[in-house]
């Protein structure tokens, strides 16, 4: 294939090759004295963007100091991994339903965001939490309504 590799090419290769190696070493030497770009994670915490998709979270609305969930179950139905379980309860007056318990199994969640998109009451959002490692499988199961109570 490459037949014309004579003495001239041989010498040329040695010189251009050495030059390229020296240039390459210059590049890395320059980088040796540049500031580092990594984040020292447990010591420094990265700031998540507002659109970051953590697990889902119920929004605390100001008008009723609670969520707007009506336990319609669309989120549970649309979830590809069957992560969500919603349990509703009738209000005292009996005319409206509201979400009483809202369990997600985060260990199975693929963070697609379909539940947030589909919610007719727009009461779901993504949390900004990213430290979502658990010691037990059951730690991944969380009740959003309870978390909402704790946030109040």
């Amino acid at each position: 294939m490459n037949t014309s590799y004579g003495f001239k090419e041989y010498v040329k290769d040695i010189f251009t090759g050495s030059k390229s190696l020296v240039i390459g070493m210059g590049v890395t030497l320059k980088r040796l004295f540049q500031p580092i770009v990594t984040v020292q994670y447990p010591r420094q915490k990265p700031i998540m963007t507002p659109h970051f998709r953590g697990h889902i979270e119920a929004i605390l609305f100001d008008d009723n100091k609670s969520h707007h969930c009506v336990a319609c179950g669309l989120c549970a139905r649309t979830c590809p991994s069957h992560v969500i379980k919603v349990q509703g309860e009738k209000t005292k007056a009996g005319d409206k339903k509201y979400g009483k318990k809202y369990f997600i199994d985060f260990t199975k969640c693929s963070l697609c965001g379909l539940c947030v998109d589909v919610c007719p009451e727009k009461t779901l959002k993504f949390s900004n939490e990213y430290e979502l490692a658990f010691f037990s499988r059951w730690d991944g199961v969380m009740d959003l309504m309870q978390r909402l109570e704790e946030r109040k």
């Binding site: 980088r31 040796l32 580092i36 020292q40």
Partner: peptide, 13 residues
């Protein structure tokens, strides 16, 4: 350490 700093990271800390 040298590898770390060449690669713009701190190496063992």
């Amino acid at each position: 350490k040298v590898a770390g700093h060449i690669q713009l990271r701190p190496g063992p800390m």
